[in-house]
Design a protein around this nucleic acid. Structure first.
Length: 919
DNA sequence: CGCCGCCCCTAC
DNA sequence: TGAGGTAGGGGCGGCG
């Protein structure tokens, strides 16, 4: 193997970079670990397979001769021809959208004008891609039929509505002549509130295309008159449902499920499995048993390098793209089978990867786009590709007039365009994002996933890789990229290795964090398309499940006008008995508290008794309950709620997944199951939040405040039960005392000396307390803290015992500076060390001594600047802390924080005299 | 100086 | 036109 690289080659720009982890000589001498890893791929492949083309360590000076067939691996496997009359087509659907197109003869639905066509993208078991056009499904919504309405009035209603919608249109460039396709009478019931299970006549209004729903809804709401019926406002139902969700709910399709098109019911319209089918002819397989499998999806990860000017962030209209590294891996495999760098100018070879050299940037971009279309990935990943790499490439291609570049989706002729999108939620704050449409490919930007799912101190690729993989990026400073590019083929080679690694790391992270599997399971459990999980909030997932459940009972969801109101009361936090406990503290938790409350008491839209409902439906007091907030709900004997049903399904499915997980030995299937149980748990917990979301699709504060009300009552009752039974007078060693509790947990000082005893009594107490509550509400023994330092509400630390009574598993810190990201590392480290000395060494004096020492070091300028910088927010920069005055100020702050946090009693008395002074 | 509102982040 | 919830500690700046 050719590891050797020419020594003593010109090294530009590195020597003057004062603070570098490695000297220039180090990386010149030996290949990095990553290079060895790359070369191993090569070896393995040479051993394992016949040479189908090249395994990849060649350098191809492309010039103008790029061809999509340069490497036979790039293409998908050959697709055997398909005979619709004798073969069925089975594929895993990974993305779903719709478009307006010409009706296809022989397909159901309207035949005139533009019609909405649902489009599914997917992959077969053999790795062939499928694009499936589904015809004949039209959007619809409901309004209650006015009194006296009969089927004889349908025609008039339809005609009049059609005419007002047409009149309402400002422009009619699609030349629509029919807006209302159909109006039918159907028996439905409003899901909001209990009305004695009486279904009423509703009008189901089917529109020609999705964007006509909103005006039709608005006009009906505003006041609509037809025939002899008086003008009136119609309350719309389900007029705010995304068309994709509407289709999926109605056809029982969930995100990422397997779809079967039976023989004789579809037709092949273009080459590789591009098919047309009627919407009622497809079979959606529930994700159970064999249908839980995942197709061999192609995942592309890429990274670009630009040659920026000194000290200026690269700008696409000025600075060239000089390299693009790409790695492609099949989902479920452990290694990428394509490893390629496109470079501008020559580049020395890298074992284990293929290098394509271009002399023109235009050609590089154009060829990479062609490469992407040839590889035809189902999933595209990378780091910050959504807000940097893709926008940069599109802008750069536009600047250079590479006109064939921006066709990156799977649908021929659709241009990928850049859009600015504003996404805001209380959870994630305001976030400005760019989006690029790429039909049929799921963009899985790892940075976006991490921002959504993980709370980290830093989100740089380097920090993230270190955190999850204990691996670093290749060491190349941004400032020298241009110099490396302007050097020779060796310096460009170094850049290419760096670029390859930046494409490789996201793949590794995706795998380690099981993102694809977990997101797929979430899509299957909640029923929404995969892309919604990254582009939308939490609510859509509950809506999808709610609609599915409601449909079974002919219940319909009203459109409510959304307006923020007053916050409602939440959970109780028990006043802590602050202090240091050198005795075991048992912790008891209600598992899935809010979901179990909703199930136990049958809380739902459909069971809510609004004012006067109890009397109107002549319900007896045994038929309903009154919650702690005074709201009333019918019992499940009268009507079982939708939300409790959804929750039961989710939690029982979770139980199943967990038992299957225990039995399963295949690591890949275990991952799927673990992802599934996690998705199920998260979904169950977000149902409560949905009912309390006042700016939401269907808020119901009666439900959410009843839930928290029950919770408050239960934690209080738990405290009383425990303290009343575990007493000296009942024969126990001591009177138990609940020293703290938050929402669904109580921390109990049982007065026993050992962890083992605390566990035994804790378990017994949990079971006994559980018996006082309605199933499935259950209090569980969780853990023992010993010793335990209770600083304040939501701030404590302790040694954590759970599986073993002999050794602690970890030091658990909650709410303290050590777990907060708005402190500099110095403070976090100092407090962490002090806590260790207090809890593990049981040496508070040692903690004091250590704190004094650190503060003294700080005052004397002996602390590394990196310890003082807050990594996340750059509000306090290194500059700010560079001066000595800043050190003194920080020392003062650190001292007071440390003392106040850990030694509140000594804080105000001797602080200045017992503290070190500056040197 | 104390108080209050605001912000950030966390616990659940 | 799209966005899960409340409780609560602690820092900080403005104000009386």
């Amino acid at each position: 193997m050719d590891f050797k690289r020419r020594n003593g080659g010109p090294f530009i720009g590195g020597a003057s970079q004062a603070k570098r982890g490695k000297t220039a000589g180090e990386w010149e001498d030996s290949p990095s670990q990553f290079e060895e890893e790359l070369s191993m791929f090569d070896e393995a492949e040479l051993d394992a397979e016949e040479m189908e083309g090249q395994a990849g360590h060649d350098v191809i000076p492309v010039g103008d001769l790029f061809s999509a067939d340069l490497n036979p691996r790039w293409r998908r496997p050959h697709a055997p021809s398909l005979d619709p009359s004798s073969d069925s087509l089975v594929f895993q659907q990974i993305d779903l959208d719709y478009y307006l197109g010409e009706a296809v003869a022989g397909m159901p639905g309207q035949s005139q004008g533009k019609v909405p066509i649902v489009r599914m993208f997917g992959v077969t078991d053999s790795g062939n891609s499928v694009c499936c056009h589904i015809h004949g499904f039209a959007p619809y919504f409901y309004v209650p039929a006015p009194s006296g309405f009969t089927s004889a009035h349908l025609g008039e209603f339809k005609k009049e509505l059609n005419s007002v919608v047409l009149k309402d249109m400002r422009s009619n460039k699609d030349n629509i002549s029919v807006t209302v396709l159909a109006v039918d009478i159907t028996r439905k019931e409003n899901m909001y509130g209990y009305h004695g299970k009486r279904s009423l006549d509703f009008l189901r209004i089917t529109m020609a295309m999705p964007r006509l729903i909103a005006p039709a809804k608005r006009l009906l709401e505003l006041g609509f008159k037809f025939a002899h019926f008086p003008i009136q406002s119609y309350q719309p139902y389900e007029a705010n449902i995304d068309f994709e969700i509407r289709f999926m709910v109605d056809t029982n399709v969930v995100g990422c499920c397997w779809i079967e098109l039976p023989k004789g019911n579809y037709r092949v319209s273009l080459c590789q499995y591009e098919v047309d089918v009627g919407w009622t002819d497809l079979i959606s397989h529930p994700a159970e048993g064999d249908w839980q499998r995942i197709a061999p999806l192609r995942v592309l990860s890429f990274d670009i390098e630009c040659a920026g000017r000194k000290g200026i962030f690269p700008e696409a209209d000025k600075d060239p793209v000089i390299q693009i590294a790409s790695m492609v891996q099949r989902q479920g495999e452990t290694e990428p089978f394509i490893r390629t760098v496109f470079t501008l100018q020559s580049c020395a070879s890298i074992v284990g990867s293929q290098i394509l050299c271009f002399t023109q940037e235009k050609q590089l971009l154009q060829s990479w786009a062609e490469f992407l279309r040839t590889v035809d990935p189902d999933i595209i990943t990378g780091y910050n590709i959504q807000n940097f790499d893709f926008p940069y490439l599109l802008n750069r291609a536009a600047a250079l007039k590479v006109n064939l570049f921006p066709y990156l989706g799977r649908v021929r002729g659709i241009k990928s365009v850049l859009k600015d999108l504003n996404f805001q939620s209380k959870q994630m704050g305001r976030r400005e994002n760019k989006t690029i449409n790429m039909e049929g490919r799921v963009q899985f930007d790892l940075l976006q996933i991490l921002l959504r799912d993980y709370k980290l101190r830093s989100y740089t690729l380097n920090a993230v890789s270190y955190h999850f993989l204990q691996e670093q990026k290749e060491d190349v400073q941004h400032s020298i990229i241009t110099d490396l590019q302007n050097g020779n083929e060796q310096t460009r080679r170094r850049l290419a290795v760096y670029c390859l690694k930046d494409a490789y790391l996201p793949l590794r992270l995706l795998q380690k964090l099981m993102c694809v599997i977990n997101y797929m399971e979430m899509a299957r459990v909640t029923g929404v398309p995969l892309t919604y999980l990254l582009s939308r909030g939490q609510q859509i997932k509950v809506v999808s499940q709610l609609l599915r459940q409601a449909m079974k009972q002919d219940l319909v969801m009203p459109v409510v006008k959304t307006e923020g109101g007053e916050d409602y009361t939440g959970a109780t936090v028990i006043e802590p008995e602050k202090g240091y406990y050198s005795v075991p503290i048992a912790t008891l938790d209600f598992s899935s508290l809010y979901p179990s409350i909703m199930m136990a008491h049958n809380l739902c839209y459909t069971t809510l008794l609004q004012k006067g409902s109890a009397e109107k439906n002549s319900l007896s007091p045994e038929d309903f309950i009154k919650t702690p907030t005074g709201d009333m709900f019918v019992k499940s004997s009268v009507r079982k709620g939708l939300l409790p049903e959804i929750l039961e399904n989710l939690l029982s499915a979770r139980k199943r997944a967990k038992t299957e997980l225990k039995k399963e030995t295949d690591p890949f299937k275990r991952q799927v199951l673990d992802g599934r149980q996690l998705a199920l748990k998260i979904s169950a917990n977000s149902v409560y939040g949905f009912t309390g979301a006042q700016v939401g699709k269907l808020p119901c504060l009666e439900i959410s405040q009843s839930v928290t009300g029950f919770g408050r009552q239960m934690i209080e009752q738990t405290k009383q039960l425990v303290e009343s039974k575990y007493t000296i007078s009942n024969g126990f060693q001591a009177d138990a005392k609940v020293i703290y509790g938050d929402t669904d947990s109580v921390m109990v000082k049982l007065g026993v000396a050992t962890v083992r005893e605390a566990m035994d009594i804790g378990r017994e107490a949990a079971e006994w307390v559980s018996s006082h509550f309605v199933p499935p509400i259950k209090l569980e023994f969780e853990k023992v803290y010993y010793p335990y330092l209770l600083i304040n509400k939501k701030r404590y630390a302790g040694l954590y015992f759970s599986s073993s009574a002999d050794t602690h598993e970890k030091m658990d810190c909650k709410g303290i500076e050590t777990v907060r990201r708005d402190n500099c590392p110095l403070v976090a480290n100092l407090i962490n060390t002090c806590l260790q000395k207090i809890l593990i060494d049981r040496d508070p004096q040692g903690a004091v001594a250590h704190a004094k020492e650190v503060i003294s070091d700080l005052l004397c300028n002996r602390i590394d600047i990196s310890q003082l910088v807050i990594t996340k927010e750059l509000t306090r920069t290194a500059q700010e802390y560079a001066g000595k005055q800043a050190h003194v100020e920080l020392a003062e702050r650190t001292r007071s924080m440390c003392w106040r946090t850990l030694f509140p009693s000594t804080h105000n008395t001797t602080s200045s005299s017992s503290c070190p002074s500056p040197c």
